[in-house]
Design a protein around this nucleic acid. Structure first.
Lengths: 241, 241
DNA sequence: TCGAAGGCTGACGCACCGTCAAGGTCAAGC
DNA sequence: GCTTGACCTTGACGGTGCGTCAGCCTTCGA
């Protein structure tokens, strides 16, 4: 007969695990010898291998407990189910592999494809990395708040970018970030912006955003660029008058 | 800005998990609004996706914590390592799949191939299922106790089975289990057995087994068959005289 | 005969949250 | 103005599957 260590080593589990299985009633306690040591018959090896095989497959001990007493038909069905579960896990692990690999690729994989496409388009147009990041952050918040609207809004934005005037305006606005707040070009830019705002107010993102949210989206703008702050004032003068 | 629930749902984790990450310092606590609610900027989404991607790959939170502040080279190396780990896990899962599938095939896959081959040979020779089970249990105990000797012993056994006289003897012994203890054939069988024992004592399994272990291996024999008990007596008379 | 190795029974610890409990807050509808 | 229901807060306990002492006893090999 076998000592607990021999049993455990042969099957490939720890002694602690075997005792744990006894404690929870999963593996029956064997007879003890004169000194109180556990002495295992061959059947314990078979039982323990079943347990280890199932737990290694991720089956919780309570479920293993049920399965040990299930009739063969139930058992076979359960085995089938477990194997399907394993197949699913393998699939998940594969996806996690690509997910982890994508971590090196920066933001590309984190965001919905429409958004990353849009951001790429901006980069192509010569928008600064800073500007792209502002857009990215804005769209992340929007996507989290109104996931099903974002594709439509993005489509609208892409349409706008088809207009050369708008592209010109967008790039200039991006560059204005670093201008001197006294730069006279800000007045021209403010004219264009005010006109555009009047034109588009009804049909874009603004339709669902509360004033509060709009101000929050624009907050980092005001945090960093004196020129943009000035521009904001100039536009405000033109739209409220 | 985002509430905790929007953030959690967008990234695909639970609110509880996000708070847990705050508690452990893994994700920085964001600003609170007037009522004490957490308000998340876009960066939190990016951070949280990194965390989730790594933890989903099985990286412990403490390690994620380190990685969040690692420089790109370290990070890339870690990613590589993690991906290798995932590949290994996938391999393991595959093996577990076949392991689980084998549970339906009875004992075949539990035991070393030499042993199952040997047991199959016995079945071919007409040894009863009960006899095969006795052998199986004996070999399980032996394999667990002296794993590296078993192949040699099995080889010896297989050699013995090449001898037609031995095969005849073995099958007869197996059948004797159900004989009447007064059956006269037991005397003939005891003669053959005693002769064999004298011949083989030095070269087989007996060389390493303590008397204690031998008796334990034979115990179930004496538990169930009056004929075998009688046979044991008869053999003992012949070998001790 | 002695020391190393192995056995026994508790009992605490751990990672990663799930799940109350016991509230406070916000948006919408009456 | 008030209610209702969804959402937020902190705090604490629970659960799985053992790992890891601690403190003591038994067995084995030299």
């Amino acid at each position: 007969m076998l000592t607990i260590k021999r049993l455990a080593e042969y099957v490939g589990v720890t002694v602690r695990a075997v005792r744990h299985y006894h404690q929870t009633g999963l593996l029956p306690e064997p007879e003890r010898d004169a000194s109180g040591y556990r002495r295992y018959p061959a059947q314990a090896v078979v039982d323990l291998i079943r347990i280890r095989t199932l737990t290694a497959a991720g089956v919780p001990l309570t479920r293993v407990h049920e399965l040990m007493r299930a009739d063969p038909a139930e058992f076979a069905a359960a085995i089938d189910e477990i194997n399907q579960g394993l197949a699913k896990q393998i699939e998940e692990l594969r996806q996690r592999q690509s997910g982890v690999a994508a971590l090196q690729a920066g933001d590309r994989m984190f965001l919905p494809a429409e958004i990353t496409d849009y951001l790429d388009r901006l980069r192509e147009l010569g928008v600064s990395e800073r500007g792209v990041r502002f857009e990215r952050d804005g769209w992340i918040v929007l996507a989290a708040s109104y996931p099903d609207q974002v594709p439509r809004w993005i489509a609208q934005k892409q349409e706008q970018l088809a207009d050369p005037d708008f592209r010109q305006f967008y790039v200039t606005y991006d560059q204005a970030h670093d201008w001197d707040p006294a730069d006279p070009r800000l007045h021209d830019l403010a004219d264009v912006m005010a006109a555009r705002l009047r034109q588009e107010a009804a049909q874009t993102v603004h339709e669902v955003l509360s004033a509060d949210e709009k101000s929050l989206l624009g907050q980092h703008v005001r945090d960093f660029s004196p020129a943009w702050i000035r521009l904001d004032e100039l536009v405000r003068q033109r739209t409220t008058s």
